[in-house]
Amino acid sequence: MELRGDLGEIPPKRTGHVAVAFNRAMIVWGGYQDNSDSNPMQMEVERYLPATDIWIYHTDIDQWRKLTTRGDVPPGTSGASAVQINHKMYVACGHCDGIGNTNKVYRLDLETLKWESITTDIGPSPRDKCSIWEYRDEIYLFGGFGYDPVDYLNEDGEYTKDLVGAEWGSYRGWNNQLHVFDPGTRKWRNPRCKGPKPLPRAAVGASRCGNKAYIFGGRHIDERLNDLHILNLDTLTWSGIMASTGSVPEGRSWHTFTAVSDTHIFLYGGFTTQRDPKSDGWLLDTRTLLWTQLNVPLTNPRLWHTMVRTSEDDILIYGGCCNNILDHTQKMVHSFNVLVYRFSPRSLLRMCLECAFTNRKQLKKDWENLPKSLTGILTHKLEAIELNKASGS
Rank of each mutant, 00 (worst) to 15 (best):
M1A: 10
M1D: 08
D6C: 13
L7V: 03
I10H: 08
V20A: 09
F22T: 09
F22D: 03
R24E: 15
M26V: 08
W29K: 04
D34W: 06
S36E: 05
S38Y: 12
M41L: 15
R47Y: 11
T52G: 05
K66L: 13
L67W: 03
G76T: 09
S81G: 14
S81H: 03
V83K: 00
C93P: 07
G94L: 08
K104S: 10
C130R: 03
E138L: 11
F142S: 04
D151P: 00
L153Y: 10
A166W: 12
S170N: 13
D182Q: 08
G184H: 10
G217E: 06
I221P: 00
D222A: 13
E223L: 14
L231R: 07
D234P: 00
S247H: 13
V248E: 06
G251C: 07
S253M: 08
R275Q: 15
L284V: 02
D285S: 15
T286L: 00
L289W: 05
V296F: 02
W304P: 00
M307Y: 01
I315F: 01
L326V: 08
H328I: 15
S335D: 15
Y341G: 11
Y341T: 06
R342D: 12
R342P: 09
L349S: 04
M351G: 08
K372Y: 11
L382C: 13
A384H: 04
